[in-house]
Amino acid sequence: MPLRAARVGRVGVIGHPVAKTAVVAKAVSPGPSPVAKTAVVAAAVTPGRGRRRRI
């Protein structure tokens, strides 16, 4: 189906072809230990975890 006329002939906002990113959901959900992976990420972004910073 055609796009609405208002979209045709306008300058776009994306600007360049988009590259496919890694498939985030699949990286976290399937696999041998999906729950463990999710928990690790959750722990990493939990305030107060106190990871060492090396600058």
Partner: peptide
């Protein structure tokens, strides 16, 4: 708001299989 333009469609679809 129909922000996307026709040319955006091709740019966005570039990521699709």
């Amino acid at each position: 708001a129909e922000l996307l333009a026709e040319e955006d469609v091709a740019h966005l679809a570039a990521a699709m299989d």
